[in-house]
Every structure is written in structure tokens, then in C-alpha cells.
């Protein structure tokens, strides 16, 4: 079941580059990354690609296949017509380094600006107790493999270079959400999320959720609940009233705003 695949790969660097056509033999059950590896081993030894696990676990091989942000190792050739030309380009939101490799330092810089977990003391026996239902929401977000495809597709930065400064992006909104839902964490980061991370820039158009290879429901379970939490703090009349008359939920007690 081997056949010749027509590939169009973006080759070049920050100074410029072009889509280049190749033909490479592929066989049944292969993924786009296999085709590129064969290309690398037989025709273009210096084709730059980033990858590690080849199993959708590490989030290294992010690129755009036919204009859609995908993991190359999880994009099966059988999803395409054998006669079709498959176009592979680097992620178009980040500066390119070479060929399919982009400079994703934007994300690492944002990670550095992020608050961290700050738990209270352990129980007297030296262990911590958290119930499964209480950690489950956070666990969904911790499935993130940091492929940054969501950051790549998000139009806030994809289409507006200048927004990069004030916008942490969906990957980090779910980190805020994770911490805010942590049953033992002691910080309140809602103000930070709105101000420093630029939660308000997101217009919930959900592209991040569409591309997430881990199937994390970034918008529904992360961003929107975070926006709602910000509303709790700032815009909800009943919450405000409740606070005034001392009728309020104590679930958030013991947290300090950072």
C-alpha cells in the first residue's frame, strides 16, 4: 500500500522562504511526521523539524497542515486523499527559526509571568487530603502538553502582533483556572487574570478548543469559568449584595489576593 505523496513544505528562515514541492514515498498507517522524516533521511538532510515522542505526548511537533494547526505526529495520511497535495508550514503566529521550527519563547516568557501554586500547611500526619471530585477540573487542564497550538490559532495574537505583550493566551488561562479551582491553594488571582493576563481580550470564539490535541475544553471549562469568577468579584449585583448583608459563600475564604 505504498504510494507517492505530494508534499509542499515551507522552507526558509526569518529572512524569507517559500513553499517547496517534494514527492516522497509513504505507506499505510503513516502520519505526516513519518513522511517528513523520510524526506529528511533521503532528500533533504537539513530539513528542520521539532519532534520527540511521536505519540502526541510531548507537544513538540506542532505545525500547520493544510492551514490548520496540528501535531504532525498525530495527523494521519489516511485522512487525506492520496492524490491530494499536503501543505505543511510552521506555526504562523510565532517567529520562524528555520523551516518548520518556530521560536516559541513567547510562551515561555508568559509562563514566567504566571503566578504559581501556594498551598497551606500539610495535615498533621504529613500528608494532604483532597477529594477526587475537587481535583478533577484541574486535572483536565493539567493534561496540557504545551504544544502551543491554541496559542498559535488564537486570533488575538495571530492577527495582532502588538497584543502579544498584554495577552497570556489560552494555554495560560487554563493555568489560572487550574489554580483558581485548586482545593488547597491560598491565592486569589482573579484580578491578575483580568489585568495582567488579558482575559478580557479573549472573545470566546473557541478556536483554541477546536485545535487542542488533548481535547481540553479550554473555553467552556477554563476561560468562561474564569470570566465568570472575575464577574463574581466585580460585576455581580447579588454577590455584592450578599457580601453587604453577610450572606455569602465561604468557599473562597482564606485566600489572599495577589
Amino acid at each position: 500500500m505504498a504510494y507517492d505523496l505530494k508534499l509542499r513544505v515551507w522552507r526558509g528562515d526569518a529572512e524569507g522562504g517559500d513553499l517547496t514541492d517534494y514527492t516522497v514515498e509513504v505507506s499505510e498507517g503513516e502520519v505526516v511526521l513519518d513522511a517528513l522524516h523520510r524526506l529528511q533521511a533521503t532528500q533533504t538532510g537539513d530539513l528542520a523539524i521539532r519532534w520527540n515522542c511521536k505519540a502526541g505526548k510531548c507537544g513538540s511537533c506542532s505545525a500547520e497542515v493544510n492551514g490548520r494547526p496540528r501535531l504532525m505526529c498525530m495527523t494521519r495520511l489516511s485522512d487525506f486523499d492520496p492524490a491530494e497535495t499536503i501543505t505543511v508550514t510552521p506555526m504562523r503566529t510565532f517567529p520562524v527559526i528555520r523551516d518548520l521550527v518556530t521560536d516559541v519563547s513567547f510562551n515561555y516568557e508568559k509562563a514566567r509571568e504566571l503566578p504559581y501554586a501556594e498551598l497551606g500547611p500539610r495535615d498533621p500526619d504529613g500528608k494532604r487530603r483532597m477529594m477526587q471530585v475537587d481535583v478533577e477540573r484541574g486535572q483536565e487542564f493539567r493534561k496540557c502538553i504545551e504544544c502551543y497550538l491554541c496559542q498559535d490559532v488564537c486570533h488575538v495574537v495571530r492577527d495582532h502582533e502588538d497584543n502579544k505583550q498584554h495577552f497570556a493566551g489560552p494555554r495560560f488561562f487554563i493555568r489560572y483556572a487550574e489554580l483558581d479551582m485548586h482545593p488547597l491553594d491560598t491565592h486569589d488571582r482573579r484580578r491578575l487574570a483580568q489585568d495582567a493576563a488579558g482575559l478580557g481580550m479573549c472573545n470566546i470564539t473557541k478556536c483554541c478548543t477546536e485545535v487542542c490535541p488533548e481535547g481540553i475544553r479550554i473555553t467552556d471549562n477554563g476561560i468562561i469559568p474564569m470570566k465568570e469568577r472575575v464577574v463574581d468579584r466585580k460585576y455581580d449585583p447579588l454577590v455584592w449584595l450578599g457580601n453587604k448583608i453577610g450572606l455569602r459563600n465561604r468557599d473562597d475564604d482564606g485566600r489572599t489576593e495577589v
Partner: peptide
């Protein structure tokens, strides 16, 4: 300002 910003893949 968007996908054609300088530095990104041309």
C-alpha cells in the same frame, strides 16, 4: 500586524 508580521514565516 498579523500573520505577515516581520519575523514570521513569509
Amino acid at each position: 500586524h498579523g500573520v505577515t508580521s516581520p519575523g514570521r514565516a513569509h
